[in-house]
Design a protein around this nucleic acid. Structure first.
Length: 803
RNA sequence: GCCGGCAUGGCGGAAUCGGCAGACGCACGGGACUUAAAAUCCCGGGGGUGGUGACACUCGUGUGGGUUCAAGUCCCACUGCCGGCACCA
């Protein structure tokens, strides 16, 4: 009687077995392999099939490494601070800790359905005081090292979340989390000096095996540029306006200047007859949001009435104000060269300002420029620089200015320091005490963690203070330095604080003395493979790199990049590529699929839908295909016969091992799965012809399937006569290219590049023999004079004829 | 506007270095088994034209050109979709 494939029985059996005898014993003599998933936020809505995908990809990769003899490190934890839990608390008056605990329980159950090899002994939870003690400790260290500082400044403010945001959290002028339009608000903020690490964050990208796309996004975000600062004297005054330019070569072509309306000299430069207009423009700019300003189709501006002096030729150039110049980049003032910059050209045309060409592609002046020429060329109208190459002058000009005391070489970055305070409840309290005498004082290490206190209302105040500010008994404390009365910092940290270093804590998660033991960290890290979505390209991934570099600098760890290799899995979407979400009602839960098809089938199907790095539409019908495949393989192994090996089986086996290993090694998991199907079909064909399949071939396919479909693989492995788990002491099978070769091969035949048929020849046949066989097979299809005979060994013969 | 990525049957997708386009699967059609259905197994499917049915010719990987004995793959120009950045001087 054939034994039917019953996924429930098989999966339950092996889950019990794995609990009794773990398949990933910690053998520290083996080389380590740290495969990390981006840890989830424990949301109330649970996992959908899209979340599954990343976890399945990482688990297949992990188990593959395990079978290749590595000591696998594969942890999981919870990024549990953050707004959704807090919003839920506000609505339902449940402490976020309680709802978070409940959500973790549910998601853990769902994650366990995946049957991934997570080591739950390593689990971390960012909201656990034993964990956030060290999140706070890192902040204190940054503070001590001058990297955390307070500043009163206009910051991005989300009126809906009622909190300040980092620049990285503002996407197209909107809040990354809720989509509300971001406004500006003057607030006292804690900042982290991430810009101090700009060059290292940029240059060290070269060391990483990351998708080029992500590297480029970080490069663009940091936005390093090289140029010069140049000083322009204001005519008839002692004021000096410093500008930043990446094109010091065009200095002779500067015909006007523009300052941001917020520039400190803006008002002062207005001459009496322009004062009213200037004042109005400044007021108008201040009242408009950055989104409005961005959407302006035409440039606006106002003349101050003042003139600056071009430091090279003494020309008087008018000084304007315009909001296309940003106050927080460079110096907030620019020199304008309309002939060689699109924006300056547009501004000059609109306000009828002079345009002087100083670079020409051919050295000849073009009398009527219709657009700015931004390329390189020969200097003209530039005094002693005339005739030189613009690129040379670009490099020389900063030095010339420096010698004359008129400027200097300068490097600039687009990204800013990290706004680190949040005016919300559910986050780590910033461990600082404000004392009237001593100023901001860090909470001493032995008093960490600063526990998040109980509070009556979680509601954000919207005033720029966090709900913690209302708890007098918590706020009022004593200064750790002088013992005098002091107040606690009431802002909390952003969610990124806890997620910027969690991968370090996993490997030593119970350490009471240190964030992580240096020796353990250095032996387990950096992470070899990090798997997650691309949405964190400039958020979590940039912050984690910054944290790791800082911890390296203060000697906590011995490496300065956290993630050696990064893989971004594509999203699983609903029909028509629509993102799965509760509000769109297109969420597919894995629960029913696991029930009806089993974990193994769902794992395979998650991979089979498409290339792991691309988005894929979920089509529920397809899962039948992988279930049928598992049944076919089951019938072959469990219900089929084991026979003596034939040469046909041996060849099939070596080809199968080669093909599937290669596909998996290339992270092409969709084609690896199709490879299993392909070879199962072939094995069935052989089994029909020869009565069964040999033991070695069956063992090979079962071993290779194990990372993909672990339960059924274990069952088949046991059926093949093994007591131990397929994952224990059973290496990934190897292939021998010699044994893959067929005796005869089929050659495609072409005449003038068009396919005309095929012919079988001996695998080792020489070119002449193959061509002769080809001509014979083609017969009268070769008509005319043969001009050329091409033979691509093992593939194709092409006969070129002329009529 | 700038910078990336993608475009292949009814559908998801395959195709190392340029070498038989459409692997594998879904859906579909036919057959076997069955009283029947489901399940399972086997077989067949890019389009067009002609022919008697296993045959021949021809077109075919977003569009138009090019290189080559040979192009989904390389080059040039363009179109569409997706993503990132968006006045950073």
């Amino acid at each position: 009687m054939p034994v039917l494939y019953n996924h429930k029985e098989v999966e339950e059996k092996w889950r019990r077995r794995w609990e009794e005898v773990p398949v990933n014993p910690k053998d520290e003599k083996k080389p380590k392999y740290y495969c990390l998933d981006m840890f989830p936020y424990p949301s109330g809505s649970g996992l959908h099939v899209g979340h599954w995908r990343g976890y399945v990809i990482s688990d297949v990769w992990s188990r593959y490494k395990l079978l290749n003899g590595y000591y696998l490190i594969h942890p999981m934890g919870w990024d549990a601070f953050g707004l959704p839990a807090e919003n839920y608390a506000i609505k339902n008056h449940v402490h976020p800790e309680i709802s978070t605990r409940k959500n973790i329980e549910n998601i853990k159950r769902q994650i366990n359905q995946i049957a991934a090899l997570y080591d739950w002994d390593m689990e971390v939870n960012t909201t656990d005081p034993d964990y956030y003690k060290w999140t706070q400790w890192i902040f204190v260290k940054m503070f001590e090292n001058g990297l955390a500082y307070e500043k009163e400044m206009p910051i991005n403010w989300c009126p809906s979340c009622k909190t300040g945001l980092a620049n990285e959290e503002v996407v197209g002028g909107k809040c990354e989390r809720c989509g509300s339009e971001v406004t500006k608000k003057d607030l006292r903020q804690w900042m982290l000096k991430i810009t101090a690490y700009a060059d290292r964050l940029l240059d060290d990208l070269d060391k990483l095996e990351w998708p080029e796309k992500v590297k480029k996004m970080q490069t663009d975000w940091i936005g390093r540029s090289y140029g010069a600062e140049v000083e322009f004297k204001v005519s008839g005054s002692d004021d000096v306006i410093t500008v930043y330019t990446t094109r010091p070569d065009t200095l002779y072509g500067a015909t006007f200047m523009v300052l941001a309306p917020e520039h400190e000299l803006a008002k002062k430069l207005a001459t009496p007859d322009h004062a009213e207009e200037v004042d109005a423009y400044i007021k108008r700019s201040a009242s408009r949001s950055s989104v409005d300003r961005m959407q302006d189709k035409e440039k606006t501006g106002v003349f101050t009435g003042s003139y600056a002096v071009n430091p090279l030729n003494g020309a008087l150039i008018p000084i304007w104000l315009s909001d296309y110049v940003l106050i927080d980049y460079g110096t907030g003032a620019i020199m304008c060269v309309p002939a060689h910059d699109d924006r300056d050209f547009e501004f000059a045309k609109k306000f009828d300002l002079p345009i002087i060409q100083v670079i020409s592609p051919d050295g000849v002046e073009n009398p009527d420029l219709t657009e700015a020429y931004v390329g390189a060329g020969i200097m003209i109208n530039s005094g002693s620089w005339n005739g030189r190459k613009s690129e040379e002058m670009k490099a020389e000009a900063p030095h010339i200015m420096e010698e004359r005391g008129l400027g200097r070489k300068k490097k600039n970055y687009k990204f800013r320091d990290w706004v680190f305070s949040r005016q919300r409840y559910w986050g780590e309290p910033i461990p600082i005490v404000h004392c009237d005498c001593c100023g901001a004082v860090a909470v001493p290490e032995d008093q960490l963690p600063v526990l998040l206190p109980e509070v009556e209302s979680y509601e954000p105040t919207g005033t720029g203070e966090s709900p913690l500010a209302a708890i007098d008994s918590w706020v009022n404390t004593t200064c750790p330095k002088c013992g005098g009365p002091a107040k606690r910092e009431t802002n909390t940290m952003p969610q990124w604080a806890g997620s910027s270093w969690y991968f370090l804590r996993y490997v030593d998660n119970k350490n009471k003395e240190a964030l992580v033991d240096r020796k353990i960290a250095d032996s387990m890290l950096p992470v070899d493979m990090y798997i997650g979505g691309v949405e964190h390209a400039v958020l979590h991934l940039l912050y984690s790199r910054f944290y790791t570099k800082f911890l390296y600098d203060i000697g906590v760890v011995g490496f300065d990049e956290p993630f050696h290799r990064l893989f971004n899995q594509g999203m699983i979407t609903g029909k028509n590529g629509i993102k799965m979400s509760k509000s769109k009602g297109n969420v597919i839960s894995p629960d029913d699929l696991v029930e009806n098809y089993g974990c193994d089938s769902l794992r395979l199907y998650e991979l089979f839908v498409g290339p792991p790095e691309l988005d894929s539409e979920w089509d529920e019908r397809g899962i039948d295909g992988v279930y049928r495949f598992l049944t076919r393989l089951w019938n072959l192994v469990i219900n089929g016969n084991v026979v003596a090996e034939t040469s046909r089986m041996e060849k099939l086996r070596h080809n199968m091992i080669h093909d599937i290993s290669e596909r998996l090694e290339n992270f092409s998991m969709n084609t690896a799965v199709s490879g299993f199907m392909e070879y199962t079909n072939k094995m069935n064909e052989v089994a029909r012809a020869e009565g069964g399949i040999d033991q070695a071939t069956l063992e090979a396919v079962v071993t290779m399937l194990a990372p993909f479909a672990p339960h059924i693989a274990e069952e088949m492995w046991e059926h093949l006569g093994h007591d131990k788990s397929v994952f224990t002491d059973n290496p990934w099978p190897v292939f021998d290219t010699e044994k893959m070769k067929e005796d005869t091969i089929e050659i495609a035949l072409q005449v003038n590049g068009k396919l005309k048929g095929t012919v079988s020849v001996a695998a080792d046949a020489a070119k002449d023999e193959v061509i002769a066989a080809a001509k014979e097979a083609l017969g009268n299809k070769v008509a005319g004079t043969i001009v050329k005979e091409i033979y691509v060994p093992g593939k194709i013969v092409n006969i070129v004829v002329k009529k």
